[in-house]
Design a protein around this nucleic acid. Structure first.
Length: 568
RNA sequence: CGGGGUGUAGCUCAGCCUGGUUAGAGCGCGCGCUUUGGGAGCGCGAGGCCCCCGGUUCGAAUCCGGGCACCCCGACCA
C-alpha cells in the first residue's frame, strides 16, 4: 500500500478530550475517528489492526474446537423477557419498535439467541459437548462511555458458549476456552492475569476475568504477593481482623450528641472502629434492606446483591431513609422491625459493640447479636481492601488497577432451562445442557494492545497485530535508483508473504520518520541515496534504537529477524 | 443518575471578565518556489450559523435564561 493513496491523516497533537495513551495514539495515528460518545469509525489502517485481532481470536477458538456462527443483532424483546433479563439489563438495553409497534432490542450479548439456536439443534447427549462462538457487534446504552475504545456503546465481542451434558465435562470445555484465551492474549501482545470474579448480571458460578494490569484500568484487583491469589474487588475474599474479645456485658444507652459517623464514635468514646457496628441501608428490588457490618469494614454491594438474589440494588437516599423510619447516624438493628436485616459475620461474632440507639443523639454500648438483635441473613458481604489479610495465607493483599479483557464463567443450566436447551441422556431422560460462557471485547483488546505497546514516539505494534509488517520509507524518490530499489524491495517482501506500507509521499525525511514511529510498524526499511552509496538500505526495528545498512538482497531475511523478535 | 469541566477554522487554543472595526494565532489544507536524514523555509490563498433556541441591547462570540453535545471522577460492564 502506498501512503500517497492511503486514507490517513496523522495528527501532531491529540484532541483535548483524549486522556489515555491508547486513546491519544489511536486518534493521532488516525486509526479511529469519533462519531458520538462511545461510537467510533475505523479508518483503513485501524480496521486492518482490528481484523488481525479478530483473526487471532478466530484461529485460537477454531483450534480449541469451537465453531463460529453468525447471529442476529436485532432481537425480539420477548426473548429477553423469557430469560428475565429485559428487567435485569434495565436501561442498558437499547430498545426499539418495528412498524407494527412490536418490541425489539439491539443485542447487548447473545446468551438468549445462542440458547435458542442450540435448543433447536441439540437433542441428544450424542450432540454434546459443543462450543459455539461469534464475533459480532453488541449494543449497550452505557451510562458512561469512556476512554476511547475502552468503553463503547457499540462494540465487537467475541462470545463463546459451551454446552455440556454435566458439570464434569463443563470443566473440560471451560479449561479449553481458558487455554485458548491465554494464547489469544499472548499473541495479541496484551499481558493478562486471570483473577477470580463475580459473574455479574449474566449469572452463574465459577468465574474468572482476564485482567490487563494498568493504572488506567477501571477495575480494582486484589493480589496476594505471597500465594498468588488474585480476585477483583467485588469477589475478593479476605480474613477479617479479629474482634476485641470479651464476655457479653449488659447493654447500656449512652448520649452521643452530634456523633453520627464511626469516626465520631471512635474519637468520642476512645474505642476502635472494630468495636462499633455500622448500619447501611439499601433498597433491593424495591424492598428496604438493613445491613449491619462491623465499623472497620465496608459493604461489598455486589456480594450483598448476590446474597439477596436481587436484580437491582441501590443505596437508599435520604428521603427513602426517612420513609423507612430509620435514624441516619444512630441506626441499628436493635429493636428494628419491618425490614430484612442482613449481617456480615463480623457484626455477629464481635461482642459488646457500640451501635445506634435508633434515636438521634444516642447510641447503645455492649450490643450483642443473638441477645439484643437478630439478623435474618448472615453472609460475608464485606469489601476487601488493600492491606487486608489474604484468605488463603494471611499475607496483606495489594490493590492494583486493571482492565477486564475477557471473562470466562460457568453458567450452568440457567439459560438452558429458561430458553429450553434440553437433551436426552443415555437413559432417555430429558436434561438441561450445562453451559459455559466466554467473552472478549475486541476493541478494548486493541486499546490495551496499544497501552501495552507504545513509547514516547508512538505505537510499537507486536508483529502479529501491526497493520503492515514493514514501513518502507523512500527518500528522494525522484531519483531513479531510489525508486527502483523501493520497487525491488516491495516485490521481494510481497514474494516472501510480507506486507508493507510504502511512504512515497513528497514529504521531508523528518515527517516520514515521525509518521513511521507514530504508526509503529515493527520493521522500517529506509531507501535513500545516502544508504545506497553505502551499498544497501537501512533496516530498523521499531522497538530498538539503532539501524543497520544491509544489502537489498538481505532485506527480507533481516526483516524476518525483526518480526520474530517483535512478537508479543 | 450525582459531582466537576469544555463547546470559536480539520486539530490545539486565544478573544469573553470590561458588548462596538472585516473574529485571531500555531499546526494542518491548496498553489508556486526553495528544500530532502527527525513534523524544514519563503510567498500567496481557501477555510467560521463563534453548539442550538430565546432574551437584554442601537449593537451579542462576549451579558442573562433554557436546551443540547462532548470529556473527566463516582455507581454498572467486554
Amino acid at each position: 500500500m502506498r501512503m500517497s493513496r492511503l486514507l490517513l491523516k496523522t495528527l501532531r497533537e491529540a484532541p483535548a478530550d483524549a486522556d489515555l495513551p491508547s486513546h491519544k495514539l489511536l486518534i493521532r495515528a488516525g486509526l479511529i475517528s469519533q462519531l458520538a460518545a462511545g461510537l467510533y469509525s475505523f479508518t483503513p489502517l485501524g480496521w486492518k489492526v482490528f481484523r488481525r485481532l479478530e483473526s487471532i481470536i478466530r484461529e485460537e477458538m477454531d483450534r480449541a474446537g469451537a465453531q463460529e456462527v453468525h447471529l442476529p443483532a436485532l432481537h425480539p424483546i420477548e426473548l429477553w423477557e423469557k430469560s428475565g433479563r429485559a428487567a435485569a439489563m434495565g436501561e442498558t438495553l437499547f430498545r426499539l419498535s418495528d412498524r407494527k409497534e412490536h418490541g425489539f432490542a439491539l443485542g447487548p450479548t447473545h446468551e438468549e439467541v445462542i440458547s435458542d439456536l442450540a435448543g433447536r439443534t441439540i437433542q441428544s447427549y450424542r450432540d454434546l459437548p459443543v462450543t459455539l462462538y461469534q464475533i459480532q457487534t453488541k449494543f449497550r446504552d452505557e451510562p458512561r462511555p469512556r476512554g476511547g475504545l475502552i468503553r463503547l456503546r457499540e462494540f465487537t465481542m467475541k462470545d463463546a458458549y459451551s454446552f455440556d451434558t454435566g458439570w464434569d465435562t463443563l470443566d473440560a470445555s471451560y479449561d479449553l476456552a481458558f487455554q485458548a484465551y491465554v494464547r489469544i492474549f499472548q499473541r495479541a501482545g496484551v499481558p493478562v492475569i486471570p483473577v477470580a470474579a463475580d459473574s455479574g448480571a449474566i449469572g452463574g458460578k465459577d468465574s474468572q476475568e482476564f485482567i490487563f494490569l494498568t493504572p488506567n484500568g477501571e477495575d480494582e484487583i486484589l493480589l496476594c504477593p505471597s500465594c498468588g491469589y488474585a480476585a477483583n474487588a467485588e469477589k475478593a475474599e479476605f480474613r477479617r481482623p479479629a474482634p476485641v474479645a470479651g464476655e457479653p456485658l449488659p447493654m447500656e444507652r449512652i448520649a452521643t450528641p452530634g456523633q453520627r459517623t464511626i469516626d465520631d464514635l471512635v474519637a468520642a468514646l476512645g474505642i476502635e472502629a472494630r468495636q462499633t457496628c455500622k448500619a447501611v441501608f439499601f433498597r433491593a428490588d424495591g424492598q428496604p434492606v438493613f445491613v449491619a457490618i462491623r465499623g472497620d469494614l465496608d459493604v461489598n454491594e455486589v456480594k450483598l446483591k448476590n446474597t439477596l438474589k436481587a436484580k437491582a440494588l441501590e443505596a437508599m437516599d435520604e428521603r427513602m431513609v426517612r420513609a423507612a423510619g430509620l435514624v441516619a447516624g444512630s441506626a441499628s438493628a436493635v429493636g428494628l422491625q419491618g425490614m430484612t436485616i442482613v449481617a456480615d459475620p463480623s457484626a455477629v461474632e464481635a461482642p459488646n459493640l457500640v451501635a445506634g440507639a435508633n434515636e438521634d443523639g444516642f447510641h447503645l454500648r455492649n450490643v450483642n447479636h443473638g441477645r439484643d438483635w437478630q439478623a435474618n441473613i448472615v453472609a460475608e458481604i464485606a469489601l476487601a481492601r488493600a492491606g487486608d489479610a489474604c484468605a488463603t495465607c494471611g499475607t496483606p493483599l495489594e490493590v492494583k488497577r486493571g482492565m477486564e479483557m475477557g471473562h470466562v464463567f460457568k453458567l450452568g443450566t440457567i439459560y438452558s432451562e429458561s430458553m429450553g436447551v434440553y437433551y436426552l441422556d443415555e437413559q432417555g431422560e430429558r436434561k438441561p445442557a450445562v453451559m459455559g460462557c466466554y467473552g472478549i471485547g475486541v476493541e478494548r483488546m486493541l486499546a490495551a494492545c496499544i497501552e501495552a505497546n507504545h513509547d514516547d514516539n508512538g505505537i510499537t505494534w507486536p508483529a502479529g497485530v501491526a497493520p503492515y509488517d514493514v514501513h518502507l520509507v523512500g527518500l528522494n524518490l525522484d531519483q531513479a535508483p531510489v525508486a527502483a530499489a523501493v520497487a525491488n524491495i516491495e516485490a521481494a517482501l510481497l514474494d516472501a508473504g510480507l506486507t508493507c506500507l510504502i511512504d512515497d509521499r513528497a514529504e521531508s525525511a523528518g515527517v516520514k520518520f515521525k509518521d513511521a514511529d507514530l504508526l509503529g510498524m515493527p520493521a522500517r526499511v529506509t531507501v535513500s541515496p545516502r544508504a545506497l552509496e553505502k551499498g544497501g538500505v537501512e533496516v530498523k526495528a521499531r522497538r530498538a534504537p539503532g539501524f543497520e545498512v544491509v544489502p537489498i538482497a538481505d532485506v527480507v531475511a533481516r526483516v524476518r529477524d525483526i518480526l520474530g523478535a517483535s512478537g508479543a
